[in-house]
Design a protein around this nucleic acid. Structure first.
Lengths: 333, 333
DNA sequence: CTGAAAGCGCTTACAG
DNA sequence: CTGAAAGCGCTTACAG
């Protein structure tokens, strides 16, 4: 199995042609005789030659690697979102002859990304989330590294792709309001995540569209830990809240736990919905009404965009992907 | 921010020395005057020079990339195990100046790994699980790529690191038996995963050690889908089973759902334990008695071993890491 | 202690 | 249509 050290020079010598010719036969660039090309290609196949991409990269100033920037914060790490994203990205990168290089960053420490860039190990990068103050994004921009952001950002120069969180939350919240619910509470995550703001805006949109609605609403943001959720939920239960809206499945899981512990019936006593639908909640009872996004598709699209940018195509601002509202047993709608 | 195209030649010229000297000053290899080294280092720092690792790699026939082989099968993808592993690996690789290149493989398709190897993009690889018939492992061996396997394998040539699944399951099962349980059932995943066999062996060990035990036991393997679990559990409930032992948290989650739906009290009516402890079950009620492994540590150790192998150190066969049995409310022990 | 030169395995003007 | 040669940015015997 040592075909691994066959080089273009070996082939050239063996076939009595120049390295130039071999190179051209493989890349398809430059004029070359049909006959010659065939001879080379046959030899290459017969001997399982595969070119040294590193050398090729050095000559062309390319690496054929894409940087995948993943958050390393606790809590976040385990969300299935990033894994699914990664799978989508990996597949389309691979299909285009690219590999994926990992860079794990936290809000305050982006050294892995810096290293990948300074070491010229990547041709471009994909951010898998966006922050209100986004250090990785800033770094990529300052260093002229092409990138696409999964998530939204106000920076219009940045190529970005996201699910329509705002629209989705607007629609789901609207359905709740229209069903006659008179009191509801929103529990959300960190405000520094762009997605939190977008979901919040969608939530508010629904009220703005229904000026006649005269119920009560409460909003709790920056909720990060299970204990906090518990406190909030307990208070809400005392107040006889009708519906609790969770920004993500982690929060929703916490809420359901409290319900279960206190033997509160969902949806009979309190309705619950989540603005995100992952395997975390997949097989809990009751099934939770929530919004579903095609995350793998998101990864694929993002990667496709980056590949096109690397091919010199002009990039296209912001792209918004759809969503699906899934009504399930945790609501009475 | 265009310090990115400063080369060793520029520095040599600027400082009036040879490229050789600059190279030596940076790498520390070969004799060089203290004075000269300082001049070079100061220049390098002042101008934020960072060498082109790709070129360096070409000259040294190294890439400073580690291949991370991740399973892409559905179900598996979302297990927090692989993400945690990845974090551990990424951190220690990064600390040693290496980057992590992703290769997603399925049981029958390892093209991403093949590409990474044929393209000479990695110096070594880490397998994040092992199979009874392991195609990725075979491929790496055939091509002489250094690797360490997270998980166990019968192949003694393979460097492997794993948690002591057998010992852990033996201990937990033993505690159950000693507590006076008279009937229990084991539900396990795919037999092609090495870990399934190891957990099963531990389970059986506990019985072997207690020849006097005269209760009943049942074993269900190759269980993959929620529907299957439901059927099994329903039958077990009819039989008034005392305890259900789940091989992992996915299976355990399914079991708990059935309990909840049927209003079965855990642990009053049936006790439940899991042989793995992840965030999937983290905040469910009742908390599930299970075995906890330090997965990030596993990743770190595995990566450390690979790095040492790449440094020419001799590798050390099989390493077994510990575990912790966590007794919680789902059992009466 | 330092340097000129060859080499890593490709690509790509340039010339024929 | 094909090739000799220079170049991508490093490293490393070899010689001094």
């Amino acid at each position: 199995m040592e075909e691994r050290n066959l080089t273009i020079a070996d082939i050239a010598q063996e076939l009595g042609v120049s390295k130039t010719t071999v190179s051209r036969a493989m890349s398809g660039k430059g004029r070359i005789g049909e006959e010659t090309r065939k001879r080379v290609q046959e030899y290459v196949e017969a001997h399982h030659y595969s070119p040294n991409v590193v050398a090729k990269g050095l000559a062309q100033n390319k690496t054929f690697n894409l940087g995948l920037v993943l958050p390393g914060d606790y809590n976040i790490v385990e969300l299935p979102f990033f894994q699914k994203c990664m799978m989508g990205i990996s597949r389309t990168a691979s299909a285009a002859g690219y590999d994926v290089l990992l860079s794990v960053v936290t809000a305050d420490k982006i050294t892995q990304l810096e290293r990948a860039v300074m070491n010229r190990k990547i041709d471009g990068a994909i951010l898998t989330r966006t922050l209100t103050d986004d250090a990785p994004m800033r770094y990529l921009q300052e260093n002229g590294v092409p990138f696409v952001a999964i998530g939204s950002t106000d920076d219009t120069r940045a190529v970005q792709i996201d699910n329509d969180h705002r629209g989705a939350c607007r629609e789901l919240t609207g359905k709740l309001l229209d069903s006659g619910i008179q009191s509801l509470a929103l529990i959300g995550g960190r405000e520094e995540y762009m997605v939190t703001g977008n979901r919040l805006r969608g939530f508010e949109d629904a009220f703005a569209e229904r000026p006649g609605w005269d119920g009560s609403r409460q909003i709790f943001l920056d909720i990060d830990e299970e204990r906090e959720v518990e406190k909030i939920v307990e208070r809400l239960l005392e107040e006889q809240i009708a519906c609790i809206v969770c920004m993500d499945d982690f929060l929703c899981g916490c809420v359901l736990n409290v319900m279960q512990m206190r033997q509160i019936e969902v949806p009979e006593q309190v309705q619950v919905v989540s603005f995100y639908d992952s395997s975390m909640l997949a097989n809990r009872t009751p099934a939770v009404t929530s919004i579903r996004f095609d995350v793998e598709e998101l990864g694929k699209k993002a990667c496709g965009m980056l590949l096109r940018m690397l091919d010199g195509e002009e990039a296209e601002g912001r792209i918004l992907l759809g969503y699906e509202v899934r009504m399930r047993e945790s609501t009475k709608i």
